[in-house]
Amino acid sequence: MGNLITFLVLLVLGYVIGGYLERRHYASIRQREGEIVSLPSIMLKKPISSNEPSNYKLVTGNVVISVDYFKKFMASLVNLFGGSIEAYETLLDRARREAILRMKEDAKGASEIVNIRLETSSISTNSQNSIGAIEIMAYGTAIYL
């Protein structure tokens, strides 16, 4: 009985607070993406502009977002049957966009960012009690004209 209550409290906590934080994060991502959309960021090795750059800079953005209890529970349920874990998909989406945003914010004043790469690192999976977090790093070369 005590277990059940603990579980339900954690589930509701994860759903309500985790959901609220996710909505807030998305709102922030959308707003910042709109502000910074004009900065070209591509994965090509060569710049779009043919002008000779005045400076280059390695720009990075990294993010670690933890899963909430609700998402974890959903994942463990889907884990029994197979199928896409949609609860984690939004997490990945947020992490990827946030990492790119941070990288772009690191490139203030640049005319473009080229050769962007995305990588996942793993702090949490190596720890003994895996806490379940998504870690994404985006990096590229900012070009200043």
Binding site: Y15, E33, E86, E89
Partner: peptide, 26 residues
């Protein structure tokens, strides 16, 4: 010619409500 575009959210964000999945799987 490069044209700035915002990400298309319908691609990577699931459209079903998380509670629907919860009810279905439980």
């Amino acid at each position: 010619m490069y044209q700035a575009k915002l990400p298309d959210e319908s691609v990577n964000i699931p459209t079903t409500h998380p509670l629907v999945g919860l009810i279905k799987y439980t």
